[in-house]
Design a binder for these strands. Structure first.
Lengths: 417, 417
DNA sequence: ATCAATTCGTTCAAACACAAAACTAATGGA
DNA sequence: TCCATTAGTTTTGTGTTTGAACGAATTGAT
């Protein structure tokens, strides 16, 4: 069974919904008074007062001392999201590193960590232990000490069963069927973090969330985030919601067939996008003299990408050819996305970002040429501006977002102590 | 503005939600007592009694005289969806016909009409008038006389702005920017149908709804319906909701690029799915001696499709080759769907159905070969069993479905007269 | 036949949340 | 000073779910 039936609506459902609505309104309208919230939500002033009081009590909202300057009348007490108490932590597991990002409710980064870690060699159990240590170390930091925790999210480049928090299959990590959420919850049970909600999700999905909330195309409801890591994955947000598919396999854009009888892909097929525009394919063609025989992995990748960019900058024809070709295939894949999903933005992440000056022009051209809708349905395609560990930050943001919808296991009832 | 913000929750919101939940429970649990509804929804017996009373009052539910046969205890009064009052009407505009389907709340067909009509030659205004006549004629029929109307839906092979009910662009009809919903509402204003809710949507989307509710794969939450009409369109249901994209262009699968430098498509590009597996392409290759020079249209299509099937049946190599090739390209497109969306079923509709015995085997093979997920993520691909005017019926079903979610402008408060 | 047990559905008071309106508070301007 | 205006709280009312108690209808045992 997939779709958990929404339970019946009762009192608390109404209350929670409205708490979420007020919270979202306060967030988007920056500093604003109760009266403004009432006017823009349609709720009465009385109800808003009650809801705001509860939000303040929970540490989500606070009154600034400031007042507004209307023409006449009593000035309103301005409200803001309380950025100084609750925090959300996003973790990210990738092939060669672990990352941690902590954000307050204003989505300011409070603390970040980035440590080298060979997740493939270590295996999932060792990785879970390491994640726990990262968490304990971070929460012991003076910046986080005694601040209540909204939750912990973990981004993994894998197929995830989100409901149970299980890593079904992570080809690049060599993991299969590991119950990460349960394991992490157990490991935290004896610590100060006991009881914190844990959310496990796909890295591309969380990257898309990060773009949705923090990128320069923020608040675009229908967007696709393409990860340019060892593989190419797509995180799809439709109407602000992640698209998962029947069994969580959605977004495997790396293996859509683009060229009949094309080059062989690691997946065994021919002519996949990944075989035509994946990192491995680009590097092999762009800097053939430097690429070893086996699969390209680890920190070597970073330097090879840098070298590719350097040569392209110097107008090296081999490098330029490779990038132009990859960009064109990427554009054909983007056109497929446009035709099928009609997103308003496609964002290139990961290693595509440093290469985007050369990838994007042919990519845009191919996308426009193969889109059915005029002007590609107004879809923009641009490099991400978020940098590395976007997925970790996206995870933290997803936790904060969940407050708006009131769908999160209530935030800790942390009354002012 | 796209996403209308959900309003704040109030009393009526709760009430409507719960009415919808009870209605859905009664529908799915066939004849069942109030006690069973209470147990399976989590609502109190008292609440269920109140909700059921309202549903009965509105003519949506009725008590059968029958009672259940438990071991001991007072027998329960069985409830059923009331199939004898409310009806929903689905209209369908296609290139060469208009269709009307009427269904009661049990989703039984009450009345259907299918009339030849050249929508391209007639133009949208003439078509709207014809639709009104169809409606008036149908509602005057003894079968529908005096039965309250849930609403009217119109399926159009076009890009639709669902919110306003406007036909943005219908290439095959030659329509652009026609406010069909408004026009139809105005035309009905002086009639007995005044005030009936009108819903306009894409034919592929409504075809998908029809499959979702009535096909042999019914209740599959994530499915794709492929229309094999003059063009190839995809209606995508993800988690039971239609996927529309940022501007309603989603599902234009007919023009995804599959073959670099392939045959030229009517859209101006090369190697689109439609150019490789569209009806025109199939017929030109399968029965080259019969196809005229210009575009193939109208009732000729039907006979050519029949002739193709006949020759394939007789092992004519030309016809078989054409179908095998088309099936293979269809399979590559299906694999793209599987990789990107991970649906649990893909359903072939329209003229693909009579040709499916020859299309499906190569199609299944290609789909399996190019899917990343093992076993294509358990995605089945099968011909539709619904026959023609599936979109009209899907529209009627969509109206009935909307009752469940409580999101429809309340059903007429038709108390028993 | 009678009575206990069981299950169904309704009734009634209570709790809860929002709605509407009156009221207090604070400020600007005449 | 007084009034108009806007902000926020208090009060009262309404609608809906909740929970317990009650009456109703049937089975099965005495």
């Amino acid at each position: 069974m997939v779709g958990a039936t929404e339970g019946p609506a009762g009192f608390q459902a109404v209350r929670e919904t409205n708490l979420g609505i007020v919270l979202r309104t306060i967030r988007t309208s920056a500093p604003c008074s109760r009266a403004v919230v009432a006017a823009s939500t349609g709720l009465t002033k009385a109800t808003v007062s009650s809801l705001v009081a509860e939000l303040i009590d929970r540490g989500l909202v606070c009154e600034t001392g400031l007042v507004n300057q209307r023409r006449v009348g009593r000035p309103g007490m301005m409200l803001t999201i309380n950025g100084s108490t609750l925090v959300a932590i996003g973790l990210e597991v990738n092939v060669d590193y672990l990352a941690l990002a902590t954000m307050d409710l204003l989505e300011r980064e409070v603390l970040t960590r980035h440590v080298a870690f060979d997740a493939r060699a270590a295996g999932p159990e060792e990785c879970a232990l390491r994640l726990r240590d990262l968490l304990l170390e971070a929460t012991a930091d003076p910046l986080l000490r005694d601040r209540p925790l909204l939750g912990v999210s973990v981004a993994v480049p894998a197929l995830i069963d989100v409901a149970s928090g299980t890593v079904s299959n992570a080809p690049n990590l060599g993991w299969r069927g590991f119950p990460l959420k349960r394991r992490l919850t157990d490991l935290l049970a004896d610590t100060a973090l006991a009881g914190a909600p844990v959310l496990v999700d796909n890295d591309a999905n969380l990257g898309a969330v990060a773009e949705y909330r923090g990128g320069h195309l923020a608040r675009t409801l229908d967007l696709v985030y393409l990860t340019g890591e060892v593989g190419i994955g797509a995180g799809v947000l439709m109407n602000g919601e992640p698209l998962r598919g029947a069994s969580g396999f959605a977004g495997e854009i790396g293996h859509i067939p683009l060229l009949k009888d094309g080059p062989r892909c690691a997946c065994g097929q021919r002519g996949c996008l990944e075989a035509l525009a994946g990192l491995d394919s680009i590097l092999r063609r762009a800097v053939p003299d430097l690429v070893p025989d086996g699969p390209v992995r680890g920190s070597v990748v970073e330097s090879l990408v840098a070298e590719t960019a350097r040569r392209a900058e110097a107008d090296d024809p081999t490098a330029l050819d490779a990038l132009t070709s990859a960009g064109e295939w990427l554009g054909r894949a983007a056109a497929t996305l446009v035709n099928l999903l009609n997103p308003s933005a496609i964002i290139l992440g990961g290693y595509f970002v440093p290469l985007s000056p050369w990838l994007l022009p042919p990519c845009r051209e191919a996308m426009a040429a193969h889109s059915f809708a005029p002007d590609s349905g107004n879809c923009r395609i641009e490099p991400s501006t978020l940098g590395l560990s976007a997925a970790a930050r996206g995870g933290a943001m997803a936790l904060i977002d969940a407050l708006d919808t009131g769908s999160l296991p209530l935030p800790p009832g942390s009354n002012a102590a």
